[in-house]
Design a protein around this nucleic acid. Structure first.
Lengths: 220, 220
DNA sequence: CAATGATTCAATAAACTAATTGAATGTAAT
DNA sequence: ATTACATTCAATTAGTTTATTGAATCATTG
């Protein structure tokens, strides 16, 4: 095989990976799958896609080998094929944040609408955990917490926080996290906590970023 | 703005980055631009694209803010917008190599046709450079060497190697490198050197990977 | 200032992609 | 075995992307 043919084939295969990621709905599915394996139904209820449409996008991702699936009873669970898929997604996210003014504007507008909450970086959190007694709060849906969470984190899904807030100690500082920088659950939780007199801030990274960085995780 | 609208916009913007990379020709252009700024003409002569087609792909990359351009006399030079673009490309490359069996097969077939040359990793090379006297040879076209190369590397473009081989010391071990894992120039150079009695091997990474890893580089 | 050369723009036809709909498949519970 | 439910498949329509062609810019060179 000559070098031209070789390159044509290689770049076509790689472009098919990029094409598979080149759709907003599929990117959202990838970010959701990064939290852990999900059924089609779970994806549907978290994205607003129709069932057939979600399934079709999953087939696309599967045929580009970005996701795998396993059947369990009535449900079929989809997962990211390997950690490299998340690395591509997060590199792409960083590229977008660094280069695309529209994304920067959307994020800062959104943050302003949430009163410009301060956020901690992963490094800052780790450092403060050494010296201070901090409560780490996972506000993602229970399923996601169960398929993996920050080592010492407590789970209170954002939509249950109002009722369960009384379970939280009022003397500890709270750091909340969720899926990642495009997810508002931690922001909403922190606002709610601050409204009720807690000392709370958010982590600027999501669980998959924490895991990717090699920090300690736990799961059931 | 509600969270659904926010997410729709964010993911659309990010998908447009991925779409821009979702074409084999544009990926090849990106890998070429990773070597340094290039004119349209240079891209054309290194890819076999038509001029109008190459220009059109460059416009696509530019409107997704993956590349920038500057004019210099008759020529317009295109560059990658920032290092994040290369990070996405290399993450995608690693994903392809790890996950796509067709890519693995293409690469190993190609390597076999080059007699399964042994290659050094960057780490191995750095280690051996401490103890031994090794000649690092950049076999990419001169333009690419000039816009950046491994610190102590000597430039002999692969297509000039036959004539200039006599300039090389015969007592030093030679390590050749080129653009990256999909580029055959280093393999061809090593084969040629070995045929003429030199002790030669290739680096398994290209210049952009060396640079991305933060190892010492030089340029004119 | 005309000629040259590098690059971009505009228009087109062919190929591909997305969302929707409704039917089909397969599993589990009654 | 019937029913309910989760998921996939197939067909359709609307919209997008690609390569090609040839014309249009625009800076340099003679």
């Amino acid at each position: 095989m000559d070098i031209r043919t070789f390159k044509d084939k290689i770049y076509s295969e790689l472009a098919s990976i990029s094409k598979a990621m080149g759709n907003p709905n599929r990117l959202e599915i990838i970010e959701l799958l990064a939290q852990g394996p999900c059924s089609v139904e779970y994806i549907v209820s978290n994205t607003g896609l129709s069932v057939a449409n979600a399934s079709q996008h999953l087939q696309t991702l599967k045929s580009s080998r970005l996701v795998t699936s396993r059947k369990e009873g009535k449900y079929r669970f989809y997962s990211l094929a390997n950690q490299n898929v998340y690395r591509v997604w997060s590199a792409m996210r960083e590229l977008g944040i660094s280069q695309n003014a529209e994304i920067g504007k959307l994020m800062s507008d959104f943050r302003e609408s949430r009163h410009n909450l301060e956020s901690l970086t992963t490094t800052q959190l780790l450092k403060r955990m050494e010296n201070e007694d901090i409560l780490i709060l996972d506000v993602r849906p229970r399923e996601e917490y169960e398929s993996g969470h920050i080592n010492t984190a407590l789970s209170i899904p954002q939509n249950e926080l109002i009722q369960k807030m009384k379970e939280l100690p009022s003397d500890k500082e709270i750091v909340a996290y969720c899926r990642g920088p495009f997810c508002a659950m931690a922001d909403d939780a922190v606002l709610m906590l601050q409204d009720h007199g807690y000392q709370a801030s958010k982590l600027d990274a999501g669980f998959p970023d924490w895991k990717e960085a090699g920090h300690p995780v736990a799961q059931y």
